[in-house]
Amino acid sequence: MAESTGKFLVGVYDDDDVILEAVGKVKQAGVKIHEVYSPFAIHGMDVAIGHPRTRIGIAAFMFGVTGLACGLALILWTMGFDWPMIIGGKDPISFPNYVPVLFEMTVLFTAFGMTFTFFISNGFGPTVKPLLFDPRCTDNKFVMAIDLSKNKLSEAEIATVLKSSGAEEVSVKQV
């Protein structure tokens, strides 16, 4: 994942509740947290760290509108203009019959657009080498990474803060 490089201090925690509390404690001590890595979603973690709210929902809505517009354009052009057909004695353009296809097009565009936005915003790709501060963070450990270059406190001071917040191990990692 394309993220910043440099010297990081890595705290390994054993429990999701402990690390969620630790985020608050570490921030209170004046340390800027780079990111937290966990094997599953911890509710409220992004808010606790202070990440901005994800805007993926807006993207999803835009894709939905695009899908609806494309569906409308396709149906109106084919059924109404290019080769108008009278079916069942109804007007060539009869909206109720178009609802199913318009709905499916909206869903299709939203789902694909949103998922690929998700992949792109996370910097995902089949050849991407993941940035793992500790490989156990996809198994059973919870990892807090602190970018030393972005913190005023010294390495030793931050290590003490991490330890006192409940970290089991603290180590330095160069990425």
Binding site: M1, N122, P130
Partner: peptide, 20 residues
């Protein structure tokens, strides 16, 4: 795809799971 379980990725993951 290079997943590393970052809090940002999880927040987005939860969000799109809900919309999906």
């Amino acid at each position: 795809l290079g997943w590393n379980g970052s809090a940002k990725a999880w927040a987005r993951y939860e969000y799109i799971s809900l919309i999906l």
